[in-house]
Simulated scan of single mutants.
Amino acid sequence: MPYQWLDQDGTRLLHARPHRSLPRTGFVWFIGITAGLLSLPLIALLGSVLMWALLPFMLAAIAAVWWAIERSYRSGTSFEVLRLTRDRIGLTRHDPGQPDRHWQANPYWIRAEIRPGPVERYLVLTGDHKTGREIELGAFLTPEERSALQTELNRELARLRD
C-alpha cells in the first residue's frame, strides 16, 4: 500500500504517498532502449544528408519522453501526513512547488466518508461543525486503496472515542 500507519509518542500517524511504478533504474533502461530503437532507422541512413534531417526529430522525441517522465517523478513527491491524537486530528499536504497546506479539527466530530466527486470513491474527512469544511484525503490513491483507508481511518477514530 502507498500508505502506512505509524505510532510515534502517543500519536497515530498516517503517511500517504503516490505509487511509483517505474523506479529510477527502470527509467534509465527505458530511455536507453527508446534511444536505441529510435536510432535503428538512422543506421540505414548513415553517411547521407537524410540522416541529419531525421536526427533532430529523434532527439526531440527522446527529450520529450525524458521530460514527461521527469515531470511525473516531480509530481510523485507529493505526500500527506495525518496526525491523530485523542484531542486533535491534523492533516498536512505537501505538493512540490507549493506551500504546505494544514488542517486541524477535533477528532470526536470527524469521520471519513466516500462521496461522489472528481475521482471515483472520493474520500473526504467531514464532520467539523464549526467550519463545515470537507478535506480531501488520498487523491493520488486508487479507488480500492481509498475504500480500505476509509475503513481503517474510521476504525482509528472510533478507537479514540472509546
Rank of each mutant, 00 (worst) to 15 (best):
48 S>E: 04
12 R>T: 14
6 L>M: 09
1 M>L: 09
159 R>M: 07
72 S>C: 12
116 P>I: 14
144 E>N: 08
74 R>C: 10
73 Y>V: 11
135 I>W: 01
8 Q>C: 12
107 P>W: 10
4 Q>Y: 01
84 L>Y: 01
115 R>E: 02
85 T>I: 07
86 R>G: 12
140 F>N: 02
93 R>T: 13
154 N>R: 02
42 L>Q: 08
17 R>A: 13
115 R>H: 06
11 T>F: 00
39 S>N: 08
82 L>A: 05
7 D>F: 02
132 G>I: 01
126 T>C: 07
105 A>T: 05
18 P>M: 11
104 Q>K: 14
15 H>K: 11
83 R>H: 07
68 A>H: 07
136 E>A: 15
162 D>H: 15
126 T>I: 08
34 T>C: 12
140 F>V: 06
42 L>V: 09
31 I>R: 04
2 P>E: 04
55 L>H: 04
25 T>R: 13
125 L>T: 03
63 A>L: 14
62 I>C: 08
95 D>Q: 14
159 R>E: 05
111 R>N: 04
142 T>S: 14
51 M>P: 00
65 V>A: 12
63 A>G: 10
114 I>Y: 00
56 P>E: 12
114 I>T: 07
158 A>R: 06
4 Q>V: 09
111 R>W: 01
77 T>C: 07
83 R>N: 05
113 E>Q: 10
102 H>D: 11
136 E>W: 02
128 D>T: 05
145 E>F: 05
68 A>P: 00
9 D>W: 03
106 N>A: 13
18 P>W: 10
47 G>N: 05
51 M>C: 04
154 N>V: 01
33 I>L: 10
56 P>C: 11
14 L>Q: 03
6 L>Y: 12
141 L>Y: 02
109 W>T: 06
133 R>F: 14
44 A>G: 15
35 A>M: 11
97 G>S: 07
145 E>G: 06
54 L>M: 15
19 H>V: 11
53 A>I: 14
135 I>K: 00
50 L>W: 15
97 G>F: 09
56 P>T: 09
51 M>H: 06
